[in-house]
């Protein structure tokens, strides 16, 4: 009922964990049955290890949080050698989220993942608001986004998902450009750029000044963007943004998402993915759907 095939890969279910919120999955293995997770989108990988930003890096906001981690990661080589073999012990699919500061760096990371067993797809992070070079720079310009997508497609044999930024004037224009460049799927949305201030110290709460806003607070923005993007493209759209309950997930499927990623909710409820999977099953039964794919875009307007 929940088995989902996207870009030639079969997923046990369409509920994944979002990059940056679930580590490499293994951190959560003592608390979550990774076999019940459709896919783990791992923390953004770069060609070389990255230290990340200076702390403080996180701040809680109403129904959400700001983060500016700065893509701290051990590098793609370490991931391939040490982490992928561990993840292969579980049934969950593995999506390698990748990042570079130039087109060449992105392509190099993609190349390093070429032919690696146990990596099922690549997700391009062109929307990280927390690093100075690259990231968001590619996500706000349709021409640059398309150029990058093409370069990465050439460098890899894996399906390529491109993760969209909400910090743009017209997300549809960018989505279309990326689709034309050959992306296999889109995921939306990354965090919204935000800021919080300590009024006593009169300083930003986060050392990086700005951080990405995530959590239930951004859900309506995400649902709207997934709706707009999925209407405009014919490749699958993976919905992300504040999904914390199965009801939230249903909204995204109705808006046109073919799969969803659970992010910040993992932090305050490690069982979120499992609960959403169960909730979806009973919702489908109750509403008379025989398969999750029937729910995708089934919005009555």
């Amino acid at each position: 009922m929940l088995k989902t095939e996207l870009f030639g890969v079969e997923f046990e279910n369409p509920v994944w964990t979002a990059s940056g919120t679930f580590g490499f999955g293994l951190e959560y293995a003592p608390y979550v049955d990774l076999n019940r997770v459709g896919a783990v989108c791992v923390k953004g990988l770069s060609i070389k290890p990255r230290e990340g930003n200076e702390p403080p890096r996180i701040w809680e906001t109403p129904c959400g949080m700001l983060n500016a981690i700065g893509l701290q990661n051990p590098g793609v080589e370490y991931f391939v050698e040490k982490i992928v073999p561990e993840l292969q012990k579980y049934r969950c699919r593995v999506v390698a989220n990748i990042y570079g500061s130039t087109v060449e760096e992105y392509a190099a990371v993609a190349k390093a993942l070429k032919g690696v067993d146990g990596v099922d797809a690549i997700e391009l992070n062109i929307s990280c608001p927390n690093v100075k070079k690259g990231g968001l720079a590619f996500g706000v310009d349709p021409v640059e986004a398309a150029r990058l997508t093409e370069a990465v497609k050439k460098a890899t044999d894996k399906p390529v998902i491109v993760k969209l930024s909400p910090n743009v004037t017209d997300i549809v224009e960018i989505a279309k450009a990326i689709e034309s460049a050959g992306a296999d799927a889109l995921s939306a949305i990354n965090t919204l750029l935000g800021m919080a201030i300590d009024i006593r110290k009169r300083k930003p709460r986060i050392k990086n000044r700005f951080g990405g806003l995530s959590g239930p607070a951004i859900k309506p923005v995400a649902v709207r963007m997934v709706y707009q993007v999925s209407k405009a493209v014919s490749i699958p759209v993976i919905g992300i943004g504040g999904i914390s309950t199965w009801e939230d997930a249903v909204e995204f499927f109705l808006a046109g998402a073919s799969a969803v990623q659970v992010g910040t909710a993992n932090f305050f409820n490690p069982k979120a993915v499992e609960e959403i999977v169960e909730g979806l099953e009973s919702y489908l039964n109750e509403m008379g759907y025989s398969h999750i794919s029937e729910l995708v875009g089934d919005l009555r307007e």
């Binding site: 919120t21 580590g23 981690i69």
Partner: peptide, 12 residues
């Protein structure tokens, strides 16, 4: 300040 407590978020 922590978000996850299990080493995933890299916030602390």
């Amino acid at each position: 300040r922590m978000a996850c407590g299990v080493g995933a978020c890299l916030g602390c």
